[in-house]
Nucleic acid binder design. Structure first.
Lengths: 136, 136
DNA sequence: AAAACCGATTGCATTTTGCAATTAGTTTAA
DNA sequence: TTAAACTAATTGCAAAATGCAATCGGTTTT
């Protein structure tokens, strides 16, 4: 898809406006996942070809980078860049919306509530945590 | 698509995780659009069948409602419900992300900056404005 | 009465997705 | 050391979604 417009909303949607991309980011940010296997095994059962496609797209777009574990040659660790980490507020607001308007269990509702209540400080803390992973 | 999981992020994506849905909400919230023609004429050039599909989906999901203008029988005004208005924070954060990481012109950047700087107060104000439209 | 406008719908080609099987290389276990 | 299990993918194919242009029936305007 070529660029349909320069509108900020549209540009975001052209990158992550689909059913899967933000779930990968979610897995990294909230579920501490980092490998292809991890993502494959998530509850929503993404197909391996779609996962592969999205990972290479996200890499091409500078939202995550691949790191090969030195000890395990075949193991690839996917790490968010700053550009990827900055999607945290988007995910939080999607979560807040669903917690209010969707069918969400108490546990997840609490999780969202805590994230929202943490405000800018919590976001900065999470940001810092993932930035340090990035450097490692 | 059936429900893939109860995860709040996933539930949001199942509803508006596509290239078009949030653009309609954007048109209403930021560009003061309200009719089928308005949406069709937007910069991104949504196809009429897709627009029709998304509008009925959004209506079915309680995110917007149709109002037929009494004076103009054929004219239909699309209005956000509270559930729809609550997508404002999601749109703002998508905009903030693109303003930082995308290719966005100065004018749009300023618009996003103002929205973000307005914080909770501005959101409440916009919310109030659209809630009053809803009652009208 | 004709033209223009309204919210759609239709048909069809292209693209994307979903799903299962399979691959080539790597690490672990017997 | 060799077989089994695990890694990140790729392939082939059916099904669904999207993109595009033409068209529709009703409504308002001229």
């Amino acid at each position: 898809m070529g660029r349909r417009s320069t509108c900020p909303i549209n540009q975001g949607l052209e990158l992550f406006g689909d059913k899967w991309t933000l779930l990968i980011i979610r897995d990294i940010l909230f579920n501490r996942k980092s490998t292809y296997r991890d993502f494959l095994q998530s509850e929503e059962k993404i197909a391996s070809n779609i996962l592969s496609d999205r990972l290479s797209m996200l890499e091409r777009e500078g939202i995550l980078i691949k790191k090969s574990d030195a000890a395990h040659k075949q193991k690839i660790i996917y790490t968010l860049t700053e550009k990827g980490i900055d999607l945290l507020p988007v995910l939080i607001e999607v979560g807040v919306w669903s917690a209010k308007h969707g069918i969400v269990n108490a546990h997840d509702k609490l999780h969202v509530k805590e994230l929202k209540a943490g405000g800018e400080n919590l976001k900065k803390q999470i940001r810092k945590e993932f930035l340090s992973k990035l450097k490692a």
